[in-house]
Design a protein around this nucleic acid. Structure first.
Lengths: 345, 345
DNA sequence: TTGTACGCGTTATCAT
DNA sequence: ATGATAACGCGTACAA
């Protein structure tokens, strides 16, 4: 609990000098600088976040949030907790500008980034994986913008932090779970949003890597749904008529409701379905015993943590501890998917 | 973002007067008081936590932590995150005094509470469910001590907040899970720490309430293990020799390792085991395919949240939003129990 | 009853 | 290059 003032007294200099040294703002004689640095290290100086937060208010730090959330139920939960965190931080003087979009249109996202850019000090974004976005984000980062990617990452972007799913592990977990709760002999089809989505490919890879060791696994291929329930419905209808031997379906991203409706429409009650996210439509299908299990990727934590990372950086000057915060994949069934338990965030 | 100062200016009074009104410290003319209160409400005044934290330092708030953690691996994780949160909050001037104990001895806990009592402003405790403790805690609460119960609650204690498991739901989830991953015909034995522990009884009740609807469920009774691996081992050995038809075991609290070793020693490979907590010994037994699934009760969240509740109250003067923070029960199998994923807290 | 002034830790600015 | 000072928002002791 050493303060700048104490260090100043011990070194026989003024607070201003200590501050200049600690914030590398120069204009201090080398010997004094060394003395102060040594003293600070020796006494393990840690700035009091309360003091920092108090002064941060003058900087009027602003965070921009840009999520392709419209029509994707999963993001509702992410945003609920992101907003809750934001409300809390606004008491410290943080401002947040919210933007959303529907689908993954590169041009639209570029335009929204451009619109936000002059107003913000940090950006929380669910980036479209496209060269134009990569280029733009890297440029803004070079210019000093603090960037947090949420839910999906782009390796070639030098963002400061990623908060989101552990895709590979999600696929592995789903594979292992299916071999536990599915029939002995598995004839399994996979629905995924798009092969173009890195996360979706990784989940599929994890899934297959586990089931390759299964003694009786028959892979019926992966269909693209564009994360659309109607497409998923059609895919599944076709699948079940062309491959009536199908006894299990793994839905890698959105589209679970469409697939489940198709299973119902086909009068199949012998199919094991594993999907992602415990959104209301999925829980309804759990109630109807169509979907057996869902993998939960902690949307609330994703929202809270991403906002927290931006706050800590802008207001307290604390960079994120890790460059990636990966959510645990949790297995949920009807009994632990809903109700009873109070939300924690 | 209204400040006291701004309200004072708008009301044509001094800062001190506004402060007296807002903190109900009296000595303000009723009409002015009303004016100020109305203005504060109208402008939605929210005190800046940074300012509060800054002044809180002079009060030197102290939190006492008293957990019956020794020898219980589960609490290691709770304490890791509790310590991490404490370290963070210490930068704001919060002090924490740590005490631990082994087992649930009422006298010992009483003595430790007495020892802590004069030094602390808040207490985070894992209370023994005994009349003497109830009486003592209620007395301290009446005297103004802020009390948070962790992991197990006592209804008759008027603690300010409970952070811990949702026991009933944990039992229900385990029951439903067993009927998914277990054999068609279930002959199930239960091991629990003690019938005297409310949480353990609730888990059992939840478990049985689900399985009562199972078409082919045979309940072989519940044995007490005192949360001891050796006792659990003996129980399980006896069980398997007296009831060789046993094909599933539900371990409600500690003792999973002992039970698993007994299953191994009995050369049984056809038994489905569901337990609580993904402690290392359980994960080892998952690797050896003895334990199939564990219910995870978010020990890290329990630690972080309980410390956060105490901090918010002491330093920011914010009482907990809820009187109970119940953890979600997560289903974990080998693939999502360990590794790969970074910890979030 | 009310207002003033100081301290908390940090930062920015101005004067030396 | 360095020191002094004001400001941030809140709590409180003390003076009027």
């Amino acid at each position: 609990m050493v303060t700048i003032k104490q260090i100043a007294e011990l070194c026989g200099v003024s607070r201003g000098t200590v501050d200049r040294v600690l914030n590398h703002r120069g204009n201090v004689k080398p010997d004094k600088e060394k003395l102060i640095l040594d003293m600070a290290k020796k006494l393990n100086y840690q700035p009091n976040p309360a003091g920092k937060a108090l002064t941060a208010r003058r900087k009027h730090p602003v965070v921009g949030v840009l999520i392709a959330s419209e029509g994707v139920r999963f993001f509702d939960d992410v945003l609920v907790s992101m907003r809750k965190a934001a409300r809390q931080y606004e008491a410290y003087g943080l401002k947040v500008i919210w933007r959303s979009m529907r689908g993954f249109d590169t041009k639209e996202q570029c335009a929204l980034i451009d619109e936000l850019r002059p107003q913000i000090d940090a950006l929380i974004i669910n980036p479209v994986n496209a060269p134009a976005i990569v280029k733009k984000l890297n440029k803004l980062i070079d210019e000093g913008l603090f960037v947090v990617t949420v839910n999906n990452d782009i390796e070639s972007v030098h963002r400061h932090c990623y908060v989101g799913s552990d895709y590979m592990n999600g696929g592995r977990t789903a594979g292992a779970l299916l071999s536990m709760i599915g029939p002995k002999s598995l004839s399994t089809a996979v629905l995924l949003g798009s092969h173009a989505m890195l996360g979706h490919r990784q989940r599929l890879e994890g899934f297959l890597s586990v089931l390759r060791n299964h003694p009786d696994f028959h892979y019926l291929g992966a269909q693209e749904t564009e994360d659309d329930d109607m497409v998923a419905y059609e895919c599944t209808r076709t699948l079940l008529s062309e491959h009536p031997e199908t006894n299990s379906i793994f839905v890698i991203s959105a589209g679970a409701y469409g697939a489940a409706r198709a299973v119902l429409a086909s009068n199949r009650t012998d199919i094991t379905m594993i999907v992602f996210d415990t959104i209301p439509s999925t829980i309804e299908m759990m109630r109807r015993r169509v979907i057996q299990a869902a993998l939960y990727q902690h949307p609330h934590q994703q929202g809270r943590k991403s906002m927290q990372v931006a706050f800590d950086y802008l207001v307290n000057g604390i960079p994120p501890e890790r460059s990636r915060y990966l959510m645990h994949n949790e297995i949920r069934i009807l009994e632990n998917a809903v109700g009873g338990t109070a939300k924690i965030d």
